[in-house]
Design a protein around this nucleic acid. Structure first.
Lengths: 196, 196
DNA sequence: GTCTATAATAGGATAGAC
DNA sequence: GTCTATCCTATTATAGAC
């Protein structure tokens, strides 16, 4: 029997993750100190370190939280009936991302992933899950549109998935960096450049 | 008359930028200390601070160096004669990027740009230059293919450029993060998903 | 301009009381 | 589990000799 309920523990963890998320959104991962997370959460050093071993472990939790949202978007976009074309899938993916408030956090996670294997593993896992979902959808679409795709639908889908998913980093990076970036115009343009 | 030749000064700066680039490529911006840059360059603290005011100013120089390469790629891809389609442009852009050895540096710059206005300004400037080049090319293509594009070619190009350029972050992020990422397959897939 | 040595401090993490 | 106070290393930047 744990000393405090698992629910309490989870709630505290969530508070801390919330606070850390706001810090990273505001100042980036590099610019976020433990002192900042402590202040933002309203808790104390002791409380934080009671739930996380250190700063890196907090980013792991933040990354899991934010990246898991992307997977949810995609599952929500699945419509029964006709499978989605490349253009429709890209729109669904980016459209979901549009609602994400933590606009600047994901690029921070990617930068850290490029250098920290544990973060890379988390980011890679999400990419792979999204890959699999897209692959299924695209293979079905290719099979239903035999005139448009050469060869085996599965092989075609495997090849094409990374190019389809690429729109997501493209959207997030431009949104995070360009002050005058127009989200709605970007989404409107997707069907004009992607096939399907 | 300066005490040392401008050429000497520039060469020293370049040495330092080279060293910093290797550090950031290896450890990320956050993981790179001034001590690391000093060791990597074989110089001393005094020498470094004689040429740069601090760490941030070195990243500015690194960012300028690496991002400027992207612009060069694109200018090299311009062929006289027929303007390039969206698919052809994306392939040219990503194909150029493929040769960039500093695979992990650009995501570091983007992450820092999300949080540091001076880095954002540099990254934004490069994006805008590439935007303009693409816009010209795409407007010409649209004008030459009247059946495929509705309305004014210039307006169409303005809308479409961000979606076309999005493939670049998509490529770089996946390459930096996914251990099994296949660059050649990605490039081969581009014509399959982009129109033109 | 560049070196060595060092100052100054920021930041991650822990100790011990409650 | 959480708080306050504090330790201690890592790190940026400077001072002064050459």
């Amino acid at each position: 029997m744990p000393k405090v309920s698992a629910a309490y523990k989870a709630a505290r963890r969530d508070e801390i993750i919330d606070a850390a998320l706001r810090c990273v959104q505001r100042d980036g991962y590099r610019g976020t100190s433990m002192a900042a997370v402590i202040a933002e959460s309203g808790l104390s050093a002791g409380a934080i370190y009671g739930h996380f071993a250190g700063k890196q472990e907090i980013l792991v939790a933040v990354a899991e939280r934010v990246l898991a949202g992307r997977q949810a978007d995609l599952e929500a976009a699945r419509v029964d009936g006709q499978p989605l074309s490349p253009a429709a899938l890209v729109s669904a993916l980016v459209g979901g991302m549009r609602l994400e408030k933590a606009t600047r956090v994901i690029p921070q996670v990617w930068a850290e992933a490029a250098v920290d294997p544990e973060i890379a593993e988390i980011a890679g896992r999400i990419f792979l899950r999204v890959h699999r979902l897209l692959r299924t959808e695209l293979a079905a679409w290719a099979a239903a549109e035999p005139g448009r795709v050469d060869g085996d639908p599965g092989a075609w889908a495997d090849l094409v998935v990374p190019a389809v998913i690429a729109a997501v980093p493209g959207f997030l990076v431009q949104r995070a960096i360009l002050p005058q970036f127009d989200e709605d115009a970007f989404i409107a343009a997707l069907p004009l450049v992607y096939r399907g």
